[in-house]
Each structure stands twice: as C-alpha cells, then as structure tokens.
C-alpha cells in the first residue's frame, strides 16, 4: 500500500468517524515506516479539514465534528508514542485560553470554537463558563496563552469582555496576549470599540483570525 493510500485511509476514517478504521490505518502507517508527523498532517488533519469545510458550509453539524475530533484523538494515541520516540514534538499552532465571561452560562459556541481550534492543531485551555475577569487573566498567565478568546451570548454579559481588556490594560498586560471576542450578540463594531484584537462571526472565522494573529 502506497503512502498516499494510507493517508487516504486515515483521512476517510476521520471523515466517516470510524475509530476502528483509523486505529488500523494508524498502525499500518507506522508499520510502513511513514513519518508519524507526516501521517498526522496528510492523513488525519486532511480529513479534519474536509469535515471542517463541510461544517462551515452547513453540510454537517456539531455532532459530526465532535465525532471526527474523537476519531482524530483515537489515532493520536497510536501516533504520539512514535512521535515522542523520534524525539520530535507536535508543534502546536498556538495556545488559546477560552472562556465564557462572567454572568453567562452558555457554552455551545465556546465548545464549537474549542473543537475547531483543537483539530486545527491549537493547544486549547477551556476554563468554562461564568468566569470572573481576573480569573481569566490569571489562567492565561499561568498557562502562557498566546490568545485569550472570550465568548458572550447575552448583551448583558458582553461588558465582561470589555472588563477583561480593561483589566489587562490596567495591569500592563495587554501586550502579552491577543484578545478575541465572539458570541451571538457580539459584532465587529463592539470588538473595535472595546479594543479587542478581533472578532469571529463563526467558529471557523474565529480560528482563521486566531491563526493569523499568532502565525501572521
């Protein structure tokens, strides 16, 4: 079986969410002596990109995206020891701290962004919903985040996004982190008004934005 055939098998298994198949293909890949990092990029990630495109077009939905992400992780359990053995490291695209701001207990949008970020190679620290502004900043410092991503689903919780940025400014930490905002009532105007580095209308726009902020 050629390299390309194995990559296709890995990719197809991601697209169909078939964990048995992905594990089998991952083992075949290692047995064939394919560089595991190459298999991750050209097989698993390629499959995730297909699912991502379909999600963005509204052809598949969150359950399919989550199943694909689980399948990806199942294959990574097989690839990771081989990658570590080669003394290589999976290079994360960047580290993102994700939170829904204080007073707001909505999680779906944030969770979708987390899944899309993870499957695009970002290291995601999701600290959950209803988070105090200062706790968000402390967690971002502790985890050495590149980006703080703040979700708000209510007009009355949006000020929480501004508060995080204001506190970062007050503490002289604003230049340490990029800050992006999102959520149902959040707009580009709001992002600009509060001094955020950007705004994502959809999960995929958010990921593109974060990617461009970190990686140029």
């Amino acid at each position: 079986m050629s390299k390309d055939d194995i990559f296709k098998k890995l990719s197809d298994a991601i697209i169909t969410g078939n964990q048995t198949l992905v594990k089998k293909a991952a083992k075949e890949s290692l047995e064939a002596g394919i560089d595991p990092l190459e298999a991750v990029e050209n097989g698993l990630s390629a499959g995730m990109r297909v699912i991502g495109d379909r999600f963005e077009k509204g052809e598949v939905f969150l359950p399919e995206l989550l199943i694909a992400a689980d399948t990806f992780n199942a294959a990574m359990e097989i690839f990771k020891p081989a990658i570590e053995e080669q003394k290589k490291e999976l290079e994360a695209s960047g580290r993102v701290l994700l939170a829904t701001v204080k007073g707001d207990v909505h999680s779906i949008g944030k969770n979708i962004v987390a899944t899309v970020l993870e499957t695009n190679g970002f290291d995601v620290i999701d600290i959950g919903v209803d988070q105090q502004s200062l706790s968000i900043i402390e967690e971002a410092k502790k985890n050495k985040a590149d980006v703080i991503a703040l979700s708000a689903l209510m007009t009355t919780s949006m000020p929480g996004q501004k508060e995080v940025i204001d506190i970062l400014n007050e503490l002289g930490l604003r230049d340490k982190f990029k800050v992006v905002v999102g959520g149902g009532p959040v707009t580009a105007d709001w992002a600009e008004q509060i001094g955020a580095d950007g705004y994502g209308d959809t999960a995929f726009q958010a990921v593109k934005l974060i990617n461009s902020l970190i990686n140029g």
């Binding site: 204080k102 007073g103 707001d104 209510m154 007009t155 009355t156 919780s157 949006m158 000020p159 929480g160 501004k162 508060e163």
Partner: peptide, 18 residues
C-alpha cells in the same frame, strides 16, 4: 426594548446597573 446603559454605565448581568 432593553437599555444598553444607565447613566453611562454599561448594563452587565447581575450588577446594580442591570
């Protein structure tokens, strides 16, 4: 409708402004 601020103070959930 809802007001977005009260005497210039943004309305935030759970606060006296709300």
């Amino acid at each position: 409708s809802a007001l977005d601020s009260i005497r210039g103070i943004p309305v935030s959930v759970g606060s006296p402004a709300e």
